[in-house]
Design a protein around this nucleic acid. Sequence first.
RNA 1: GCGGACGUGGCGGAACUGGCAGACGCGCCAGACUUAGGAUCUGGUAUCUUCGAUGUGGAGGUUCAAGUCCUCUCGUCCGCACCA
Length: 812
Amino acid sequence: MDFKALDKKWNDYWKEHKMHSFDKSETDNKMYVMEMLPYPSGSNLHLGHWFNYGPADTYARFKKMQGYAVFQPMGFDAFGLPAENYAIKTGIHPYDSTMKNIKTMERQFDEIGAMFNFDAEVYTCSPDYYRWTQWLFLKLYEKGLAYQKKAPVNWCSSCNTVIANEQVVDGACERCGTEVVKKEMTQWFFKITDYAEELLSGLEKLDWPEKTKMMQKNWIGKSTGGEIVFACENGKDEIRVFTTRADTVCGVSYVVLAPEHPLVDKITTAKQKKAVDDYKAETAKSNEIERLSSAKEKTGVFTGAYCINPLTGAKIPVYIADYCLLSYGTGAVMAVPAHDTRDYDFAIKYKLPINRVIVPKDKNADDSLPYTEHGVLVNSGKFDGLDTKAAIKKILSSLQESGKGGFKTNYRLRDWSVSRQRYWGAPIPMIHCPHCGTVPVPEKDLPVTLPYDVNFTPDGSSPLKKCEEFMNVTCPVCGKPARRDPDTLDTFVCSSWYYLRYPDNKNDKAAFDPEIINKMLPVDKYIGGAEHACMHLLYSRFITKALRDMGYLKFDEPFKSLVHQGLILGPDGNKMSKSKGNVVNPDNYTSRYGSDIFRLYLMFGFAFTEGGPWNDDGIKAVSKFAERVERIVTKYAEKKVAPCEKAESKDDKELEYALNYCIKCVTADTEHFSFNTAIARIMELVNALYKYDSLQNKNDAFATYVTATLVKLLAPFIPHIAEEFNVMLGGKKSVFLSKFPVCDEKKLVKAETEIAVQINSKVRARIVIPSDANDKEIEKIALSDEKVLAALEGKSVKKVIVIKGRLVNLVV
RNA sequence: GCGGACGUGGCGGAACUGGCAGACGCGCCAGACUUAGGAUCUGGUAUCUUCGAUGUGGAGGUUCAAGUCCUCUCGUCCGCACCA
């Protein structure tokens, strides 16, 4: 049979019979299966798309056959830099190239043969979508969760735009690899930090990969400690520091401010001014990568100013040093060289006193400096003798009483910067009025349409600024001339809420109808790459919680259960890339074997969550397997015997057992995305069926029944082929309208079981026992076995361990 | 530096709460059917000095029993990285 030819035939059938649409009356029984939506890049669907969408669709089809009303939508994350960069290179407008790519990819999605519900499709670049992205911005603004501030931001000089912290990888732009520089700019931010605690605590109840949860946890970076106030000697200013080791406060030798700290200029003495300014200039010049390198020698400069240790009253010099970061904590550190490696290095270099205040609890422990472990306080006045934990509590509460500090929790997470100085994105719906200041665009005026004719050649400022028709607007408050915000939104804003739009994608009155959304959400199974752990997956959680607090949503988390597919590497073990020339094109295989065989191979040849280097050794084998199934299906189809599920003979019963065991395993394995083992179990069933088929006394009616059941088991894995097999066997309607086989546990109970007999944990014999035998009986059978008796000769059994259904261990 | 994951035949990869290591498949070997076989079917295939011993990166440990748990160690991958 030409498997390839089946692709179109059954795709057409499914479309004609609207097999993939969702019946809205079935929300009680819904199963929202969603894959991360693709970016419409120019080329064909690549292997990564197939590996994500093929197996995920198998899961969706499996769920459909189990009786769920499956909602599996698809869309396009269509705004973004690549289209714009492509436009700059070729002159083709991003809108035109994007729409063309979308059409191509939509066609290609047909090839996968996935049950995508295209009625629910969204394009994030279409005005009827980004209108609501802008609405979301306005809502966040209303709630004080979107705000503007002038701050040092990450600037990519190649992309000519600001990027978020999450998009900076090793000091370089996540997208193009260009080194990121800090630039002081006025930008819009989303206050994701308001949700730091809930984003952290909410992780616990999520059915997500542990690794991903850990990454978010580390990214949020909660650290509990305290804030301590060091009053400046000038009597006016004060330096607040964050510390997790308040117990070491009596050992502070100096205080460090980040060079950019606003207090620096205020407190620096005339004598030190030049040195401080020089150092600041140098720091500003040095790039992020150098500065963040912990291997770098510690440097810094004395400001000439002193502050007072709130606990001891000691006079303490104030330094600036680039190892202190403005962006973390308060941008100031109390330095305790005796108990911190960095402070120690610095103190040695600048000959500052090193005051030990902690000694190890265990007298034999290594107590050399710097001693960074917890311990017992010394040289700390009334706190001497307390251990670290108790001392932190006592010292912070005592500081709290005197108003010089207190308990404080700090998060590493920073607010999400969303302004982009690029063209191809959703315009920020804000207006800057010379009289009224920053004014939101009224909701009724949405969308703020992205103009088509814009000169988007990058020059470091927002392209929209050059478009006068866009920029000039009347202020909605005072009616006088005003200017629009020229920036566009980070595309991650667009993708942070798309799952809310799918189920109600045609709504032109609202982003979504809460009544529908609260029934359809959360997403039951979300499948996509792990690279989004601290970006899309974190942003979406934040947006969901924010909308919940505004009263729109009744759930706390958007994605109840998450699975990451692994990465398929090039045959050389490297990440596929055009420059390495190791890109594998799925078309080479689909054109030869058809879509199902390719999908089946992807699922059988790789562990779904692992991926691995590409290797097509097995694809022929998988194709042969399908042909093997075809032969047996053909055979029993031609016999035209009515199927009968009654197993009579011993051989029937054996096949029946194999069938039910297979059903049980395939059900469980598919449920947790272990497709390779599920397929292995089906192969075993096929082998068992062939064996049965070769018997003299086989029962054709029973074999026909098993064959038909086999086709149902295979349906989610090879949907087009299974439809054809189903027809061959006399099926009148789509196989996906039939129920996925259910294991009959009773059929898995065998009268007899073979178990192993171990002597001193070494297998010495196998015995057959009645399945319902108790421990005593099993022991008796084991001890009467010839082989066992032979091996036991001259030894006495000291202990007998019986493990139900598995083995007996005789300890001699 | 910190955190996490992983390490199993010639290869891809199995092994549920500790319970017969190597499922399934590739490759290889043999047989059958064939004019033929790169088709199909059947059987075999961890290693070894083939009696029964050894085997899950290495070294210890816990246990009647360890791929699985603990300690140390080597290697690979990933995440974070002067986080105070």
